[in-house]
Amino acid sequence: MTGKRRLWATTAFAGAIAVASMAVSNAYHQQLLTVIGIHTLLALGLNMLMGYAGQISLGHAAFYGLGAYGTGILTTHYGWSPWAAFPLVLVAAGAVAYVIGRPTLKLSGYYLAMGTLGLGIIGHVIFREWDSMTGGASGMVGIPPLQVGGTVLSLGRSGMILVWVVVLMAFFFCDRLVDSRIGRALRALGDSQGAAAACGVDTGRLKAVIFSFSAVLTALAGFLYAHLVGFISPSSFDFLMSIRMVTMVVIGGMASIYGSLFGASVITLLPEWLHVFSDYEMMVYGLVLMLVMIFLPQGLTRGVLDALEGVKSES
């Protein structure tokens, strides 16, 4: 995207947020929008890895949980201010990802996937078993809300605005990232790893860097979730959550920043509209993943858009 289009998109998006923040006054809708915002951050984070580095993580819930539990433990057990915990949990997520990514990302895509699948499972085990710190299976309560100046940002209008402002910033910065030296190298990598390396791109390192970045965004979503909801439990950070993130990316489309918003909305709203959904949730995700990847490997929105464009240029 060029600078001008980016400015327009950002302005339009900011306008939409401003209008929504005033128009939506129903508490349930506010909550729903908040969750969609958090899920959008998750989808965006994973999409930076899947769409641009062509790699996949099956354990991103661990980074989500690291953000949430990290800040939860520091603020409730150690009395830290959330703003002091904030940089620490983000750095921790980035560091864990880098340590896992650096060796595995030199190999084929299967290794990061397996490594992160293991990480996700271990993360969930730790959240569930480390009773004294995490509250075990029943979870953690009483995580303090965020405060800016004298204003408490909690679930409701203020929380919704906070989340969407963060989403707006994430979009803005990711968009800039994609249109930069690093972003071009990433997209080049996705097209042809050999040619990218021949152009002097240190492919192993670049993939580890973007994996780290993706983990940081995911932990940021966890941080917001913990402080807005005030309560966290291990079931929000399990294997199925990791799969939910993958599904959001697959629906939203690979390497599509605004598609993340669409993928996150679908995955958040589906269970709300279809109450029987929870029984079939896994089967539906499974089918979606298989069908989309077999027939539209660029993801649902990208695939449909490409198909439409094909029809248009033919007629």
Partner: peptide
């Protein structure tokens, strides 16, 4: 072996990778 999802100019810019420094945060 061009990068098909990049423009012509962007392809050449990738060639410039090692002569530029900007990192993730800088971007």
């Amino acid at each position: 072996e061009l990068f098909a999802s990049l423009t012509v100019l962007e392809n050449v810019l990738v060639g410039r990778h090692v002569r530029t420094r900007c990192g993730l945060v800088g971007a």
